[in-house]
């Protein structure tokens, strides 16, 4: 009896120990290394690094991509979640599987596909050339690649909560004479607003941090197609470690901010709170 207790205790201890080791090894140490190196030549140097012209340009380009991608993917996510949860149709499973494609396909592959698609000899290359717009190795291509990588985030957040809520409220709205857009604006959106907001935070975080696909379609043109993660790579390849870590620290800060947002949303969201109370209450 006593032996069993000791065994149970040590078992639990080992589990916690393993978890802690992982946490330290893969999260705390890397984070520490980033900031340690970034500040290794002093605060002045750090400030200089993150306010260099190239860095500022990279930040602006990243924000520009975000400003285009976030609204598009938000609208897409809402439409997609609405369609999947409010209607019955064939191929729903298939659509859900497609929604996971960006998670399962390597970003580099995705980037390469875009390059092949829009290059001069590609499937859509002819059309693009006629219209005289540059897509690959330019801003539009980077936007396309980022959209592809981040499109599931909003929808994935919304689908479970919309499924759980069912359609009764929407049906009640319809019986009261509301048009579809009124139902969307006055009933559906207010009820999913925190999940939507959280989905947008995740989408933004990924959008800012995306490397693989964007790297392939960008062509690495200095001063033109360099985003924050690409800038980190360039500085690293030039053996400017302090600079690289300085810029990388910006990405870390963005990541940490999204985490804080997440906690804040969880606190604010009354439905989430309700779910938690019920989960732990009974």
């Amino acid at each position: 009896m006593k032996l069993k207790k000791i065994f149970m205790f040590s078992f639990r201890f080992i589990l916690v120990f393993i978890a802690l080791c992982f946490l330290v090894l893969f999260l705390v140490i890397p984070l520490f290394v980033v900031f340690y190196n970034a500040f290794s030549k002093g605060i002045g140097m750090y400030w200089g690094n993150i306010t260099r012209e190239e860095t500022i340009e990279a930040i602006f380009l990243t924000l520009k991509i975000l400003i285009v991608v976030l609204p598009l993917n938000t609208i897409f996510g809402i439409a997609c979640a609405w369609y999947i949860t409010k209607y019955k149709f064939r191929g729903k499973k298939l659509l859900l599987t497609f929604l996971d494609l960006p998670f399962t396909v390597s970003p580099v592959v995705a980037g390469t596909v875009f390059v092949l698609l829009f290059s001069v000899n590609g499937l859509l290359g002819g059309i693009v050339e006629k219209m005289n717009i540059q897509i690959i190795f330019a801003f539009p291509g980077m936007v396309l690649a980022t959209i592809f990588i981040t499109f599931p985030f909003v929808a994935r957040e919304l689908i479970p909560i919309m499924e759980e809520q069912g359609q009764e409220m929407e049906e009640a709205g319809r019986m009261l004479g509301a048009r579809t857009w009124q139902i969307l604006l006055k009933i559906t959106l207010p009820n999913i607003r925190w999940a939507l907001f959280y989905g947008m935070v995740l989408c933004s975080a990924r959008c800012v941090g995306e490397f693989g696909a964007v790297s392939v379609v960008s062509g690495h043109i200095r001063g033109k197609t360099i985003t924050i993660p690409l800038e980190v790579e360039i500085l690293y390849n030039e053996y400017n470690l302090v600079g690289a870590f300085g810029v990388a620290s910006l990405l870390c800060i963005i990541g940490l901010i999204s985490l804080i947002f997440r906690k804040w949303i969880e606190k604010r969201d009354p439905q989430n709170l309700y779910r938690q109370i019920h989960r732990y209450g009974d």
């Binding site: 009764e168 409220m169 049906e171 009640a172 709205g173 009261l176 004479g177 509301a178 048009r179 009124q182 006055k186 009933i187 207010p190 009820n191």
Partner: peptide, 23 residues
């Protein structure tokens, strides 16, 4: 509705006013 289907993000007043406001 059997399970009321009230709009949970609206007050009682706004629930009742809904049908008038969407006209």
């Amino acid at each position: 509705f059997q399970h009321y289907a009230l709009f949970r993000h609206m007050t009682v007043f706004e629930n009742v006013a809904f049908g008038l406001r969407v006209k």
